[in-house]
Design a protein around this nucleic acid. Structure first.
Lengths: 151, 151
DNA sequence: CTAATTCCTAAACCTAACTTTAGGTCAAGG
DNA sequence: CCTTGACCTAAAGTTAGGTTTAGGAATTAG
């Protein structure tokens, strides 16, 4: 049997459920984050599972992931069937790893900052945070060894 | 006595020292993050202290702070004199607090995610991460109690 | 002194992530 | 049936954070 219309949501209902703007949901469709069906009149019809997808999008964005990165994550979700718990669990595990990396980067930065506050430097030639002066200059440019370059 | 030209940097030299593009430095000037002097010919002349300012800008941006937020932080730096260690230490302390808040938000998120992976949910009505279903619906919209709303 | 760099401004352009607008269609209630 | 509100598409506008371009002027190397 086919999908039961009774279980489907209009874009406005989905917007109400997720807190997203209707225009944002349409935009996410153009970006391949969701792929709703259409009813006879051409209006979008969403499955309840799409609430989950969009919730994930919102959370991931709050964590600083781009739409492109989220789309990549979603590629491990099945196209044909509704994602299972295992599907979401797998994707969440990856997400967790990314989160941890970000936390580590920030913690590292904070600890160096602590060191600088402690030593009163922040302007000294060999400060770990501000490495721009003459002595450190030959090692390269800018404060870059501070940042793991994971934006 | 006035400022000694020998101690000043051209925009190209500052760019080389910080790793920023010349265009970015000029842009930061329009945004009020630096206020270089000019020489007789109208070219910008920077003080060495500006290297520190720009390094701070780069680090803060890596941490996700906007230019506006950085400008606000910089308002506690003195206009008239070169910032002292104490000035930078003060600003760093605030920055540290912000960093900690971000780390906490991410850690909180990760822990909730851990819980979800552990319980295999991520799709259940009462999952802490995905709160969109019928039961939770009446408490408001979206997965918002997860996020402290500090972007 | 001259040529090659570097620098100047103003304005246009760029990407991401959306929102707004314009002009029209669909669906639901009375 | 008719009206109102929700929905549709396409295109233009918006903000942040810059970069690129165009047309000159200042500086520096030889």
């Amino acid at each position: 049997m086919a999908v039961k219309p009774a279980y489907m949501l209009s874009i406005g209902q989905l917007a109400a459920r997720t807190g997203l703007a209707v225009s944002a949901i349409r935009y996410y469709e153009t970006q391949g984050l969701i792929a709703p069906g259409r009813n006879a009149g051409g209006q979008r019809r969403f499955m309840r599972a799409d609430i989950r997808r969009l919730s994930f999008v919102m959370i991931a964005q709050k964590c600083g992931f781009s739409i492109e990165q989220i789309r990549e994550q979603f590629q491990s979700l099945p196209d044909a069937r509704t994602p299972t718990k295992a599907d979401w669990s797998r994707i969440s595990r990856r997400f967790r790893a990314e989160l941890n990396a970000r936390i580590d980067t920030l913690s590292n930065l904070r600890d160096r900052l602590d060191g600088c506050i402690g030593c009163g430097c922040l302007s000294l030639k060999n400060c770990a945070l501000y490495n721009p002066e003459d002595r450190a200059h030959k090692h390269g440019v800018g404060p870059r060894y501070l940042m793991g370059d994971r934006p």
